[in-house]
Amino acid sequence: MTPARQLLSEFVATALLLAIVIGSGIMGERLAGANDALTLLANTLATVGGLYILIEVFGPVSGAHMNPAVSAVMAARGELPWRQLPGYVVVQLAGAACGAWLANAMFDLSVLQLSDKPRHGFGQLLGEVVATAGLLLVILRAPSSRIAAMVAAYIGAAYWFTSSTSFANPAAAFGRMFSDSFAGIAPADVPGFIGAESIGALLGVGLHKLLSPSSRG
């Protein structure tokens, strides 16, 4: 695949991922009223299904990272050329913002908005460390034929067992601040999430190495 096609793939995949996450949150909130449990369940199911499809469709083109932390790890492992990493990160962030704006527009909300939903505190940041470490561990250890299903299943589980509802993705944290909805995050809390996700990615890689024979790294 040419670099241009790979970048287009990452942009479209990330935009669709954020549209799925944010759009299903808006729909779930409207249909469930004040029942946050039902809203989160709807959000989870849509994300699991959407993530599986996106990885299957865009994986053969660009790897379907949709996540700067994943792209950085792939570059460190030699599976993505370092020269392509900045482009991947830029289009992932741009795609995340566009996906949020698309979701806002589909539900007749103001397209340009910022979230005021607070997501901070030690517990939530620890949740992001755990969520991202687990995600990287799954990505690095899953058989290639089952990676889409295993990543989607893990994220679905982590929506419920982590206190942060498992963003596990700096691009997702960036994009979600552009929607003042159920899935949003206040801009002031985004740096903390990105920092926690970066730590989690390093821990996931480290744990993978500890579990692997030295020849596999």
Rank of each mutant, 00 (worst) to 15 (best):
D108P: 00
R119Y: 00
A100G: 10
A142I: 05
R146I: 00
N169R: 12
M150K: 12
Y88C: 02
A172S: 10
I147H: 00
A97G: 09
F178P: 02
I147E: 05
Y159G: 00
V190Q: 06
A149W: 09
A149M: 15
S179D: 04
C98V: 13
W82K: 14
G87W: 09
C98S: 13
V90D: 03
A103R: 10
L125K: 09
I194M: 15
G95T: 11
T132H: 04
M150C: 04
P81N: 13
F174G: 03
R146A: 13
D108C: 01
F107R: 07
L80C: 09
V151R: 01
S166E: 10
W160N: 08
A157V: 15
Y88L: 01
V138S: 01
G87S: 11
G156C: 09
A131C: 09
L109K: 15
A105P: 03
A100F: 01
E79L: 12
H120A: 13
P143E: 08
P86T: 13
A188S: 11
A133L: 02
A157W: 01
G99L: 05
R176W: 05
P187I: 02
S181I: 04
E128M: 11
A96I: 05
L137T: 04
S115T: 12
P187D: 04
V89S: 08
L125Y: 15
A96H: 07
Q124G: 00
A183F: 02
A188D: 08
A105I: 01
G123W: 03
F174P: 07
E128D: 12
V91Q: 07
R176A: 11
S179I: 04
V73C: 00
G99H: 09
R77N: 06
G99P: 08
H120M: 06
A171M: 10
R146V: 00
G184F: 06
Q92F: 03
G184H: 06
I155F: 01
L114P: 05
F174S: 05
V190M: 04
L136G: 00
E128R: 12
K117R: 15
R176S: 11
A152N: 10
A148S: 15
R119C: 00
V89M: 14
A148D: 09
L102N: 09
A152I: 05
